[in-house]
Nucleic acid binder design. Sequence first.
DNA 1: CGGTCTTTTGAAGTGCTTCAAAATACGTGG
DNA 2: CCACGTATTTTGAAGCACTTCAAAAGACCG
Lengths: 235, 235
Amino acid sequence: MQTTSLSGVSHPLPVEDPLPIPEYHQHHANREGSQALERAMLHTGVIVSFSRGEDIFGDDDPADKVYKVLTGTVCTYKILSDGRRQIGEFYLPNDSFGLENVSRRSHSAAAITDGKILVTKRAALMALAGHDPAVARQLLILTAFELARAQDRVLLLAKTAEERVAGFLIDMTKRLPARNLIELPMLRQDIADYLGLTIETVSRTLKLLKDHSAIDVSTRKVMVRNHSTLSRING
Amino acid sequence: MQTTSLSGVSHPLPVEDPLPIPEYHQHHANREGSQALERAMLHTGVIVSFSRGEDIFGDDDPADKVYKVLTGTVCTYKILSDGRRQIGEFYLPNDSFGLENVSRRSHSAAAITDGKILVTKRAALMALAGHDPAVARQLLILTAFELARAQDRVLLLAKTAEERVAGFLIDMTKRLPARNLIELPMLRQDIADYLGLTIETVSRTLKLLKDHSAIDVSTRKVMVRNHSTLSRING
DNA sequence: CGGTCTTTTGAAGTGCTTCAAAATACGTGG
DNA sequence: CCACGTATTTTGAAGCACTTCAAAAGACCG
C-alpha cells in the first residue's frame, strides 16, 4: 500500500489497531459486508496525511475518488459569491465522503485538524462492487446514510439560531465517542459556517444555552448538562 | 402487478408508453443497468395513484419502501416545532425517493398534484441487487445522485432570498422537459416552504427578478427570459 | 511573557418576516 | 358562458432575528 502526504512528507504508516467505531456507525456498518468494503478500500486505496487548513480536493476537481477519514476532522465547503463560506459537512474518523454521483466536485474539502484519510478511486470500488455483492451493498448503505445526513441538514438550516446550535450539539454527542463531553475539533467560525450563522451569533447562542443550564462551554469543549433541555430547544 | 389507490379507488393501470425522460436523468440513468433496476422495480413493485394533498408516507413510518414517481409531483416535508413546514425535496416524474438509509422516516411525503408512483419494498430491491450487479450499480447511482441533490440544497439555503429563488428556477429548467418555460406544479406556499422563505418574500422576489428582466411570471408559469442574468444572480 | 489568533461582548443596521388587506385566479353550479 | 364563493397571490407597512461593525477579553504558542 502506498503512503503519501499532501504536505510532501511521506509517512510510512503501520496498519493501526482498529479505530473505535461510534455506536452511531456500528449500527449501520453492520453484519456481513462491512469488512468487505473496508478491505477493498484498504487494498486499492492510498493513505494520505494532511495538516490543519490544507485542501484535500478543490471545487471543480474531477470527482473520481472516494475518501474515508482515519484520524482527524475534515469538512467540505463552498465559498459563496459574497465571500461567505458554507460548510457542507464535517467528517469525523470513520466517516466516508465524496460518495455523491457527480463528474466534478461542487464543494472543496479541507482539513479542520491534522489527520489521515484513505483515498480510493471510485472506479476501483465500482469494479469491485461489480463482482462482490457485499462491497456493493456496503457502498450503497454508506451512500444512503450520507443522504439521510444531508437531508437532516436541510431541516437544520430551516430553524432558528438557537435550534441550529442545539441541533448541532446533539448531533455531535451522537457522533463523538464521549457522550456528554463534546471535544470540538473545529473553531467557532467553522461552526458558524456550518450552521449558516455568524461567529457572533454562535457565540451568543452558546451563551444563551448556557444561561438555560443546558450546557457548559469552554473554548474547545462543550459539556451537555441537560440533554432533554437541549432536545426540547432543538424542536 | 397490483394496482391500488391511496384514495381507495382502484385504477386498473395499463402499462403506459415510456415516459419522456429529461436529459438530466438520461445522463445518469445510462448504459447497462439502467433497465435492470427499472425492470426490477416494475416487477416487484406496486403502482399507487394519489391525488393532490394526499400523504404518501408519514413522519416516523418504517422506511422499508423505495418510491419512483411515474406521473405528477411529490414532495417530502417536515413540520417544524413552530408550525412552519420545510419541504425536503420535490420529486418529478422519473425521480426516485425514499432511498436514504434509516429505519424510520424523518420526513413525511405528500402529493403536490394528482399522480402515480411505483412503490417497491426496499428489501426486495436489496435482494435483487445481491445477485444482479447491474441492479446494485443503478441503485447506488440513484442514491449517490440524490445525495448530490441534497448537498446542493444545503448550499441553496445559505443564500439570499433572490439567490434562492433564482437557483430554484434554474434547477427547475434543468428538471422539466421544456427548457425556458417552467410550468410550476406547486403553489407559491410550496416554493416558500422549499426555499425556507415566506410566501410574501417569494412573491416579491419573483417580481424583483421580473423587474430585472430575467423572467416573466404568471401564476403557474415562469418564462426564463435571460438565463445568464438568472445564473449571475444565483451566484 | 509577548505577540497573534480566537472568542466574546456591545451597539447599530438590514433583510426577511409578520400582520393586514386588496387583487387575482380558480372551481362550480346555474 | 357567466356569476359567485373560495383559495391563492400580491402588495403595503411595521417588527424582529440575525448581521455588521467595532473593540475588549481571553486563549494559544514559541
